[in-house]
Design a protein around this nucleic acid. Structure first.
Lengths: 149, 149
DNA sequence: CGAAACCCTAGCGCAGTGCTAGGATAAAGG
DNA sequence: CCTTTATCCTAGCACTGCGCTAGGGTTTCG
C-alpha cells in the first residue's frame, strides 16, 4: 500500500508550479533544483501530466511548463490518478475497469477494498492545489516567509 | 497504492477460519482448497499471523490452525498490518516509525498523506471478522445457503 | 511406526521502480 | 543563420519485492 515517487514527486512539482504561477513558464530543472529531485526523472513525469491536460509546455529558451488550469480547479486526486493510475487497493475494485473475478458477486472482502478505495479518493479529491498553496503560505509565514515544500 | 496478495489472501484465510470456527483446527490445505490458493504459499502467511497472536496452531494429524481470539475481537486492520506492515502511503507518515525527511516540518504534501493513512486505517479498523462473517452469511443466504468468500 | 499436519529455509522468474543516458526537435536572441 | 536553452523521445539498467515452488525437518495422533 505504498505510493510511488511518481505521484509524490509529481504532486510536489505541481505545487511548486502553483506557487510560482505568476512567473511565467517554469523550467523542469528549476523545479527539480528547488525540490531536490533528478531533473531528467522529473522530466519524464511531465509527459503524462501534459497528456492529461494538467500542464502546458512552452519550448525554447525561457520555456518551461505552466499550469493548464487554475490551481483551484486542479485536485490532488487528478494528479495522483494521472501518475499512479486509477485508485485501487486491489484490481477488482479499480476505479476504471475492475478486473472482477468470478467470486466478485459473493466476495465479502471486496466490500472492504471498495470502502478503502472510496476513502482514499475522498481525501485526494477534497484538496485542490489552491488549498495546498494556502497551507504552504500559512506554514511558511510562520518561518521567516520562506517557501518550503 | 496496491495491496499485495499477502494481505488479501491472509484476510480471506482468516475469514474462512472464522466461518468454520466451530469445526476444530483447520488445516491450511483445506483453507487453500476452498479459497483456490496455493497451500504452500498460504502456509507461509500463517507464520506472521501466529507470531502476532491472531491464530494458534495444533500440530500432528487432525491439526491445523484456530483463531486465537473471538472473531469480534479481531479487526481487519490487525490482519492487514500483520501481513503488510504498518499503514503508510509513504514512509514519512508510517504508523510505526515514520522516516521523516528534513523538510517534514514544512511539508504540505505530507499533510495529505497523513490524512490518506488515517482514512485507510479508519476503514480497516472499523470492521471485525465477526462483521465479515455476518455479511458473508447475509450474502450467502441469498444464494442457496452456500458460503462464498 | 507411519501418516498427517505444521514448521523452516532457500531459491527463482517476473514486473515495476527509480533512475541515467543519448540524443532529436523547437524556439528565442544575437 | 547559429548558438543556446529548453522540451521531447527512446532505451537501458540495477535493484527490490512479489508470488510462488521446492525440499526437507519436526510434532503428534492412531
Amino acid at each position: 500500500m505504498k505510493m510511488s515517487t511518481k505521484g509524490r514527486y509529481g504532486l510536489r512539482a505541481m505545487l511548486d508550479m502553483a506557487i510560482h504561477q505568476n512567473e511565467g513558464p517554469i523550467a523542469v530543472h528549476s523545479i527539480a533544483e528547488r525540490q531536490g529531485l533528478s531533473d531528467r526523472y522529473l522530466e519524464q513525469l511531465m509527459v503524462p501530466l501534459k497528456k492529461a491536460g494538467l500542464v502546458k509546455s512552452v519550448r525554447g529558451p525561457q520555456g518551461g511548463y505552466v499550469l493548464a488550469k487554475e490551481p483551484k480547479d486542479i485536485t490532488v486526486g487528478e494528479i495522483i490518478r494521472t501518475l499512479e493510475g486509477p485508485i485501487a487497493p486491489v484490481d477488482c475494485v479499480s476505479e476504471d475497469y475492475p478486473e472482477e473475478c468470478e467470486r466478485a458477486e459473493y466476495c465479502v472482502t471486496r466490500l472492504i477494498w471498495s470502502k478503502v478505495r472510496d476513502s482514499i479518493a475522498e481525501v485526494l479529491d477534497s484538496f485542490s492545489l489552491e488549498d495546498l498553496v494556502q497551507e504552504s503560505r500559512r506554514i511558511s509565514t510562520q518561518n521567516r516567509y520562506m517557501y518550503y515544500i
